[in-house]
Amino acid sequence: MIPGTFDYFRPRSVAEATKFLHKSKNASVLAGGHSLLPMMKLRVAAPSALVDLAGIAALRGIKKVGGNIVIGAMTTQHEVLASALIAKHVPLLHEAAQLIADPQVRYVGTLGGNVANGDPGNDMPAVMMALDATYKITGPTKRRAVKARVFYKGLYETALKSGEIVTAIEIPVPGKHGFAYEKLKRKIGDYATAGAAVVLTMKAGKVSACAIALTNLGATPLLADAAAKALVGQAPDDKAIGAAVAAARAIMDPANDTRGTPEYRKSVGGIYVERAIRCAIAAAAG
């Protein structure tokens, strides 16, 4: 559990950070470090340098800009939990942050690190997919924005290119909606055995809009599009919910690990999707 040698760089601006990242051969961005540092201690990751974003004030903070909530990438999970803006406008995020690890981790772990790492076990990616968030990205030469729903390419593989940093997360404030994040975990601090995020709107007793996303049930976080479609335009009865659950299960491809066999995780994954849907419906109707 001792890392190899590496250089440490603490830039004061995003420009400085991307410049360094660009010219360095094998540098890694350091946010909260809860995923990266253990990997380095195991010598699974051996970056030549760490570019610590903690000194860049512009990367912190939560604000409302027009119809969007914008969260700086270095905002900690604790700050998300403590934010009245988040609680008011994106309560799903508040609910999910509570289920991440433990207080000590949440004081240091960041939202940007959680979404940019590409670990299917992280909770925030599915939440961002359900909320249709956009990641603001700065590279050495230009800026761009990528939707969370198309950001995740494979296990630890994302749309981020060499030298790029996720600087902020932009979430369109949903109208009146119901939401839920249901997560099964073995203990405090564990990644999900299965997790499901649901955002939906009800109109005249029918589901008018819906998004469902899944945590740790595949190599990437999964947007369960067909599952959401199975509900939209329907009265949310057992049949419609059953169809949505079946559609969600159909895209699950969880790993076989100590959390259980893929068969178990798909079975329980479906149950957690169902719980999240029912919970969101109740909230939307209420």
Partner: peptide, 24 residues
Amino acid sequence: IRYDAGGNVLTGSFMDFFMPTAVE
């Protein structure tokens, strides 16, 4: 302490080796 068929330890850290916290 669980092994796979190749003799690899699958529960070599507190992520997978169940060490309950006060919550559980």
